[in-house]
Simulated scan of single mutants.
Amino acid sequence: MTAPSRGRGRPALFNADAQQRYLEARAAGATQKDAAALVRVAANTIRYHRATDHAFREADDTAAACGRQARIDQLAHGETRYKHYGCRCTTCTKAATVGRTNRPSYNAKEARIIPISPTGQESSCSFPLARAS
Rank of each mutant, 00 (worst) to 15 (best):
A27M: 11
D60P: 00
T93K: 03
V39F: 15
N44C: 07
A36S: 12
R103I: 08
I116V: 11
R81A: 10
P118G: 09
R47E: 12
T62R: 14
A30N: 01
D60Y: 03
I114K: 03
K109V: 11
I114R: 06
C92V: 12
A108K: 12
R47W: 15
C92E: 09
N107V: 10
A96W: 11
A35V: 00
D61K: 03
T101L: 05
A18P: 00
R103C: 05
A70K: 12
I46W: 02
R40T: 07
A65L: 11
H77L: 13
C89Y: 03
T119Q: 08
V41A: 04
L23C: 00
A42P: 11
T62Y: 12
L38S: 10
A25H: 08
D53N: 15
Y22N: 12
H49T: 05
P115E: 10
Y48R: 10
P115T: 13
V39S: 10
G99V: 07
A35R: 04
P115R: 14
G29H: 07
E110I: 06
A111F: 09
G86M: 03
Y48S: 09
Q32N: 10
R47D: 11
Y82S: 02
I72E: 09
T80W: 14
D34H: 15
G99F: 03
T31F: 08
Q19F: 03
A63E: 07
A70G: 08
A96G: 05
R103N: 08
D53R: 13
A111L: 09
D53C: 14
A65V: 11
A42G: 14
R57V: 01
A36H: 09
T119W: 09
A43C: 14
L75Q: 10
G67Y: 13
H49C: 07
I116S: 04
T52A: 05
H77N: 06
L75D: 04
S117E: 09
C87K: 06
L23S: 01
T90V: 03
L23Y: 03
H49F: 12
E58W: 04
N44Y: 02
T93W: 01
C66H: 15
K83R: 13
D17F: 03
V98G: 01
T101P: 00
A42L: 13
T101M: 05
A76G: 12
R112I: 15
P115I: 13
T80M: 14
A25P: 02
Q121C: 10
D60N: 03
A42I: 09
T101R: 06
A35C: 02
A59V: 00
R40M: 08
D53E: 11
G86P: 05
F56G: 03
A36C: 13
I113R: 10
C66R: 15
A36V: 07
Y48I: 06
T91I: 10
T119G: 06
H49P: 00
R103W: 10
R57S: 06
D60K: 00
D73I: 09
A43N: 15
A108S: 08
R81W: 09
D53V: 05
R21A: 07
A65S: 08
A111N: 06
R100V: 01
I72F: 14
K94A: 13
E24P: 00
G78N: 04
E110M: 04
